[in-house]
Nucleic acid binder design. Structure first.
Lengths: 345, 345
DNA sequence: TTGTATGCGTTATCAG
DNA sequence: CTGATAACGCATACAA
């Protein structure tokens, strides 16, 4: 077992010099076909593979992109990453996945890693926009980056989803059916999706002249279990909601658990709208009316924007792309019951 | 905007030499506390960060692990990757994600990339065990690797799931309920899970003295749509199955679609067992009896085995770990209907 | 068109 | 304990 051949070995075997080998391999403008042949023969004979680490050292570029997110088991992130990695790979980049589990330390470590490893760029889905240290690190990193669905260091490129419009659509739809007490399940308002959704909800309610009950707005930890207990509490309250808008990725399962535990009928006892167009929303019975957007497009756009930056496309302003959402009407919403049990008491 | 400081800049600023700076930073055994202080002061003053590319060049290790799989949008893979990345990150490795979309070319390119980039190891979920080129490339790569749920180049470490046992359990359970015509939906038999599941199914049937009808064994492309049309065909056949075992990740959605299109009642008209313990299986109505195993454990074990290899733990034999499965009984299975409509005709 | 020599930023060896 | 210097493998400016 001998060591891997270097460019010098190839040069020797081909009876030429390292410079020529390098030129032949990198398609340099000068290459007599004789030399070309000799080099290529030596390359295949020795099984030479260029050392990318050494190339990076010389060229200052590692052709590597890092992607920071909380958790790749989240199907939304998985879908986005899937599309982004696909495109980046096609462009010759290596895709580094770095999960942070919402941990500020790990987010900071990730930014530092990107710098120390001389990675070329990053796609960022930070888990809390209010963390000053992380924002500062990101801002000072001085590395091509694009943010996905995050708002704070707005000096750089970003892809957004129109979560506010989505929340407006959903809320209006329920109002149109006659609902007045509509609960809202949210992820943290420390990230853009949560904030925008809350804003859209409030706007639609205000438009319709319905007072906003803060008790009906429930930010959740992103856990099925947490949503479950919170819904329980909500439905047992004296004046329970007649509809619920589930605007967090994995919260629907919690809601469905409550629904089946309490033997609630959908949509007679409770109307439900959920975010995400998953197997669960499609094949629950009844299927759940839900809000959809193009996750793959989100990932692709992020990759494209990043590649443009990497290719040195200069723009006067940071690019911001906003993706639309769509409300898919299914069977989980109906008019509220005319006479809630309470009334009789 | 000036260039990043190098170790030489630090040495100059600290009034010492590069050697000493390197020693201080890497916790070398020798370091007078005076020099230590001077160096550290210079480091923070300049904002020096060591260049990992140069370190890799010198040290021959990039502290990078690559993971090859078909598609990270597949929730099974996502869960595995999630756990593996977590552990590897903790150990200081960078995690490279490389999707192949079942494409042989990309699998080959991935192996080559791992070599040229001097990555330290790889976690492999190849999409077809019968591809000789890929197997050869893997075998010759001469890089620490661990396979997940794949069998062919068995000379290296691997983590397995007991898919055969799972299929046996599921089939026996249905037989116990009185089913004789049990359909089996499978991924490709070109990968171990497909093969093992088919074997388990056949074994359980044979044990019970039930003849094996090849028409009931349906390998699928891993697409919801494909499963949908195939199930349609199956259920319209003259002698349709009374139960169906869905042993492919995303096939249950296709089955559920058929079920709702044809207004089938579960479990009265059709019993269903599915692989994977997802929101869909949990909250469908009725909830679907399903086969579960610990995906996170799978990912962790793979990472652990790899780390052991990387740490130079030598074993006489390749390590093979097998993970058990569990059949979760829910409401989707019942006795077959006593008198199928056909009988009357 | 080709060969030689330099430097990319580190770590480690080897004198001092 | 510390400083100078030689690799690591490659691409390229420069000389031929």
């Amino acid at each position: 077992m001998t060591r891997r051949p270097t460019i010098r070995d190839v040069a020797k075997a081909a009876g030429t010099s390292v410079g020529s080998v390098s030129r032949v391999l990198n398609g340099g403008p000068y290459a007599s076909s004789d030399l070309h042949n000799k080099v290529m023969r030596a390359v295949t004979k020795l099984g030479y593979e260029p050392d990318v680490v050494a190339q990076s050292m010389r060229l200052k570029s590692t052709k590597t992109i890092a992607c920071m997110l909380a958790d790749i088991a989240n199907p939304l992130y998985a879908e986005i990453v899937n599309a982004a990695e696909e495109l980046l790979q096609k462009e010759g980049y290596v895709f580094v996945l770095s999960t942070t589990r919402n941990d500020e330390e790990r987010e900071l470590a990730m930014v530092s890693m990107v710098r120390r490893r001389r990675m070329d760029g990053m796609i960022v889905m930070a888990s809390d926009e209010t963390r000053k240290d992380v924002n500062d690190a990101l801002a000072q990193a001085n590395i091509p980056m694009v943010l996905i669905d995050r708002g704070v260091p707005a000096h750089c490129d970003a892809i957004f989803v129109d979560h506010k419009g989505a929340a407006v659509d959903a809320t209006r739809y329920l109002i149109g059916l006659g609902h007045k007490r509509i609960a809202l399940l949210l992820p943290s308002e420390n990230v853009r999706p949560g904030r925008e959704r809350a804003n859209g909800y409030r706007q639609a309610l205000t438009e319709a002249g319905i007072p906003i009950d803060p008790d009906l707005i429930r930010p959740q930890k992103t856990s099925v279990h947490f949503a479950y207990t919170d819904i329980e509490k909500l439905l047992q309250s004296p004046n329970p909601p007649t509809a619920i808008i589930v605007l967090g990725t994995r919260m629907l399962a919690g809601v469905m658990k409550t629904v089946s535990t309490r033997n609630l009928r959908i949509p007679e006892d409770l109307s439900i709208i959920s975010v995400g167009d998953t197997d669960l929303t499609r094949f629950a019975s009844p299927p759940i009316t839900s809000i959809r957007w193009d996750l793959a497009e989100l990932g692709r756009s992020a990759a494209e924007l990043l590649i443009e930056q990497l290719n040195g496309v200069k723009r006067d302003k940071p690019q911001h792309i906003s993706l639309p959402t769509e409300l898919i009407i299914r069977g989980s919403c109906a008019k509220p019951r005319a006479t809630p049990a309470k009334k009789k008491a």
